[in-house]
Computed example of a mutant assay.
Amino acid sequence: MLLSMQKLSAIKRGRPVGSRTFDPASAHAFGEAVREYRLLIGLSQEELGNRALVERSHMGKIERGEHLPNLVLILRLAQAMDMKPGVLVDRTVELLETPASSV
């Protein structure tokens, strides 16, 4: 039992060394998807931010691909645009699969 307790205490919490959670390509594609749908429904960044409880400056970072939102924020953005979150995610995947020269 003492050996198993020593093993547990040796486990390091948090992200492994060298891991990263930010993926620039995914962030850019998601931001582009948000911008497309926001413009399609005729909202400004500020209006979308207000609906989703996000600062306008943060909306700009999301749309420019400087910030990759977590699940909670994706859900709030989708709700603010009256759509299912899967629509944003599906469009993000489409943009990631599209060669850069044709975007």
Rank of each mutant, 00 (worst) to 15 (best):
E47D: 14
E47W: 03
E47S: 14
E47H: 10
L48N: 02
L48E: 06
L48Q: 05
L48M: 08
G49A: 07
G49S: 09
G49Y: 02
G49P: 05
G49E: 06
G49N: 07
N50P: 02
N50I: 07
N50Y: 08
N50R: 15
N50S: 13
N50D: 15
R51W: 06
R51G: 00
R51E: 04
R51A: 12
A52W: 04
A52D: 04
A52E: 02
A52G: 06
A52P: 00
L53S: 13
L53C: 10
L53Y: 10
L53G: 10
L53H: 12
V54D: 03
V54P: 03
V54C: 08
V54T: 13
V54Y: 00
E55A: 14
E55L: 09
E55N: 12
E55G: 10
R56L: 07
R56V: 09
S57N: 12
S57Q: 11
S57I: 08
S57W: 05
S57G: 07
S57P: 02
H58S: 08
H58W: 08
M59Q: 01
M59L: 13
M59V: 13
M59F: 05
M59N: 04
M59E: 05
G60L: 05
G60D: 07
G60C: 07
K61H: 14
K61E: 11
K61V: 00
K61P: 05
I62Q: 01
I62T: 00
I62K: 00
E63Y: 01
E63A: 02
E63S: 05
E63D: 04
E63F: 04
E63G: 03
E63C: 02
R64N: 11
R64E: 09
G65S: 02
G65W: 02
G65L: 01
G65D: 02
E66S: 08
E66Q: 12
E66A: 08
E66I: 01
H67D: 10
H67V: 12
H67W: 09
H67Q: 12
H67F: 12
H67K: 14
H67S: 12
H67G: 04
H67Y: 13
H67M: 11
H67L: 15
L68H: 11
L68D: 12
L68V: 10
P69W: 03
P69H: 00
P69M: 03
N70V: 11
N70K: 13
N70D: 15
N70S: 09
N70C: 08
N70Y: 09
L71V: 14
L71M: 11
L71F: 09
L71R: 11
V72S: 14
V72G: 09
L73V: 14
L73E: 11
L73K: 12
I74C: 04
I74N: 04
I74D: 00
I74E: 02
I74F: 02
I74Y: 06
I74W: 02
L75G: 06
L75H: 06
L75A: 13
L75D: 10
L75C: 11
L75V: 14
L75Q: 14
R76I: 04
R76L: 05
R76G: 03
R76S: 15
R76V: 06
L77P: 01
L77S: 06
L77E: 03
A78V: 07
A78D: 07
Q79V: 09
Q79R: 15
Q79F: 11
A80M: 09
A80G: 08
A80I: 10
A80E: 04
M81L: 14
M81Y: 04
D82Y: 12
D82H: 15
D82T: 10
